[in-house]
Amino acid sequence: MDINKEIKRLESIYLEKPERVFTMYLNTDPADPDQQGGEWRIHLKNALQRFEQYLEEDGDKAELDNFCKVKDRVKKFFAENELQLQKSVIIFATPDETTWVAEILQVPVETELYWEEIAKVDQLIDLSQTYPKSGIILTQREAIKIIETELGRQLATSYFELDLDTEDWKKHTGPHYAQSTVSASGTSVKREQFNKRFEANRHRWYKRIASKLDKFAKDRDWQHIYMVGNQDETHDLSQTMTKPINHFINKNMLDKKEAEVIKWITK
């Protein structure tokens, strides 16, 4: 989802009775003291019941039927995804199903539910500004991993590994293999030799991948760039790039799972 395009699309929606737009921001964070017992279920159930009760009393059967269509789809979404919930859920939905946005997020929201003529996008705009489309560049000597995120969600992951024979960086579709490549002999001597070679050539080798990292940032419209790894390595790597680095993290997280890295950075 391109969040900026989605916001513009949602802002363009205006529906008159008996049509309406359902907007939901729901706090499902298990670490929140107010959510220790899964209170989000009660908040959601009560809010949906209040909307339904109001529409029944209002006597507009067509609007009530429309709301029930959306309500049933919302309940089905939670039934299918309850075990995957993280800190929050946002939903935008219309009865004719031309709009259905349902996202499980690792970032906090304030619980709000609406059934109105327009989609309520204020919180979504705030989230897009607080957690913009970002690139997380993790480096560990001869291996580099790139995690793309938006709204605290993983969009994609790419891996690069230095080929010591050609001194060029090769892209992989899976986890890096550099550790096994440079230590195939199983001796600490080979690793020590590589470390000396790496330190002597680090700046030159990082310069070879800088243009690829800059292209990633440009093509994917990163609004924020994190660089994570050994302080000396990230400094050298950043110096070879034209794109500015917004935040440096002196921590080795290359082998951590993407969700763990994103959670640590967005905490």
Rank of each mutant, 00 (worst) to 15 (best):
Ile13Cys: 00
Ile125Asn: 07
Asn230Cys: 05
Ala119Thr: 07
Ile137Glu: 05
Ser188Tyr: 10
Ser238Arg: 01
Ile245Glu: 11
Cys68Val: 13
Val107Gly: 07
His235Ser: 07
Ile104Lys: 03
Ser158Met: 09
Trp40Leu: 08
Asn250Phe: 14
Lys120Ser: 13
Leu26Pro: 05
Arg202Ala: 15
Ala217Cys: 15
Lys69Pro: 00
Gln36Trp: 02
Asp236Ile: 02
Gln106Asp: 13
Lys196His: 11
Gly174Thr: 15
Glu117Gly: 02
Glu258Ala: 15
Leu85Asn: 10
Trp169Leu: 11
Pro18Arg: 03
Thr99Tyr: 00
Met1His: 04
Arg73Ser: 05
Glu148Gly: 01
Ser180Ala: 14
Lys218His: 13
Tyr226Pro: 06
Val107His: 05
Ala143Met: 14
Gln106Trp: 09
Leu237Pro: 05
His224Val: 10
Asn81Tyr: 01
Ile7Lys: 06
Tyr14Ala: 05
Ile7Phe: 08
Ala93His: 10
Asn27Ala: 01
Arg73Ile: 00
Leu164Cys: 06
Lys263Asp: 09
Lys196Met: 12
Glu39Cys: 05
Gln129Trp: 09
Gln53Pro: 01
Gln154Tyr: 02
Val89Asp: 07
Phe248Tyr: 15
Phe22Ile: 01
Thr98Pro: 02
Lys170Thr: 12
Lys75Asp: 05
Asp236Gln: 11
Ala62Phe: 08
Glu161Pro: 00
Thr187Cys: 04
Thr130Lys: 14
Tyr206Cys: 03
Ile137Cys: 04
Lys218Val: 12
Trp264Ser: 10
Gln36Ile: 08
His203Asn: 10
Ala156Lys: 09
Glu19Lys: 06
Glu116Gly: 05
Leu155Asn: 12
Phe77Gly: 03
Leu164Tyr: 00
Ile91Phe: 11
Lys75Thr: 08
Arg197Gly: 12
Leu85Ile: 08
Asp232Arg: 12
Met1Ile: 05
Asn252His: 15
Asp122Cys: 07
Arg73Phe: 02
Lys207Ser: 14
Gln239Thr: 07
Lys71Asp: 09
Phe78Asn: 02
Lys45Ser: 15
Asp72Cys: 01
Met241Pro: 07
Asp72Trp: 04
Ser188Glu: 14
Glu82Ala: 11
Ala143Glu: 14
Asn27Tyr: 06
Asp221Arg: 11
Asn66Asp: 09
Asp58His: 12
Trp169Ile: 09
Glu82Arg: 08
Asn201Leu: 14
Lys120Glu: 14
Ser180His: 13
Asp165Ala: 10
Ile249Lys: 13
Met253His: 02
Val121Lys: 07
Arg202Cys: 13
Leu254Glu: 04
Lys170Glu: 15
Gln239Lys: 10
Arg20Gly: 09
Arg208Cys: 02
Val228Ile: 03
Glu192Lys: 11
Leu162Ser: 03
Tyr131Phe: 15
Gln35His: 06
Glu199Thr: 08
Lys76Val: 00
Asp236Gly: 06
Val189Gln: 14
Trp205Asn: 05
